[in-house]
């Protein structure tokens, strides 16, 4: 356990790292500051065989601190242009941690648009690689703003990634190879390990109640009788995050106001 104070961003980084525990020799792709730091932390601690890229075209021999200066001094161990990334991911040798705009009870994600397809209220990116990623390798999610606007009550407005809705699959059969990992949010940690892949609450962050999480989720969550509190970062993890991976504190911008990780008594 930690003896020091930690921020919500630091707590989420340690939980993001967990998605790569026992992942083996695969590409760890984290989109955004918190997921990337999570991948770096996993690599420096319990999953040293992970591969990471510089986000452009090179594989890095070791995690690099965030920020331009460190990135230019990075030690490279290989080449990973996008064509090779697709070859690798279609073989399943990756676990990505992505930031969806919407998620539904089937674990289907949306980053394309919000609203009507022909005249969207908000056109965002497009499906990007989510369809191919979801059918090829495990994917986890980071949602910094846990709310019913993200965790929607029906299906997402544009199903970009495949999920556990049998009605969407040939012959109504969800492939057994489909793996949706964890969902780390500002309130807690979810997965899809309930009955028939139902969404489930795994833990609540310190100071957050189960009722708050249920209230902020547009679909039902399976909850055990006792929901554990998300464990605090260890001193070793905090030192690696603060000194090695993010000395410029880019993680301070991950959440508005950079709140503490333990919100029990606004610690």
């Amino acid at each position: 356990m930690s003896t020091s104070r930690y921020t919500l961003a630091e707590l989420c980084i340690t939980q993001c790292a967990e998605v790569w525990r026992d992942a083996g020799e695969v590409l760890a792709t984290g989109f955004g500051v918190v997921p990337r730091l999570g991948a770096g932390l996993a690599t420096l601690t319990f999953s040293p065989d992970l591969m990471m890229t510089d986000g452009e075209a090179y594989l890095l021999a070791e995690p690099v601190a965030l920020g331009p200066r460190a990135a230019r001094a990075a030690k490279v161990e290989g080449w990973m242009p996008y064509s090779r990334t697709f070859d690798l991911l279609w073989q399943g040798r990756r676990h990505a941690l992505v930031g969806p705009v919407q998620v539904d009870r089937y674990g289907q994600m949306n980053i394309s648009l919000v609203g009507d397809y022909a005249r969207p209220k908000a056109a965002i990116l497009g499906v990007r690689g989510l369809a191919g990623n979801s059918i090829s390798h495990p994917n986890s999610m980071f949602v910094p703003n846990h709310s019913p606007r993200v965790f929607v009550s029906g299906e997402v407005d544009m199903v970009c990634s495949a999920g556990y809705n049998p009605a969407r699959w040939p012959e109504g059969k969800v492939p057994e190879s489909l793996v949706i990992g964890r969902v780390i949010t500002n309130l807690g940690v979810l997965d899809f390990g309930g009955k028939d892949h139902a969404p489930r609450l795994l833990s609540v962050h310190p100071g957050v109640s189960v009722a708050e999480v249920i209230e902020a989720t547009g679909f039902p969550l399976e909850c055990a009788a006792e929901i554990p509190v998300t464990p605090a970062p260890t001193d070793e993890q905090l030192a690696l995050i603060r000194e090695r991976l993010d000395p410029q504190d880019l993680r301070a911008t991950a959440f508005k106001g950079n709140p503490p990780g333990d919100r029990t008594s606004s610690a």
């Binding site: 279609w90 289907q108 499906v127 989510l130 369809a131 191919g132 979801s134 059918i135 090829s136 544009m158 199903v159 970009c160 990634s161 495949a162 999920g163 809705n165 969407r168 699959w169 040939p170 969800v174 489909l178």
Partner: peptide, 10 residues
């Protein structure tokens, strides 16, 4: 042929 796109709104 590809499995990519199955299960999605594509």
């Amino acid at each position: 042929p590809t499995p990519v796109g199955l299960g999605t709104d594509i």
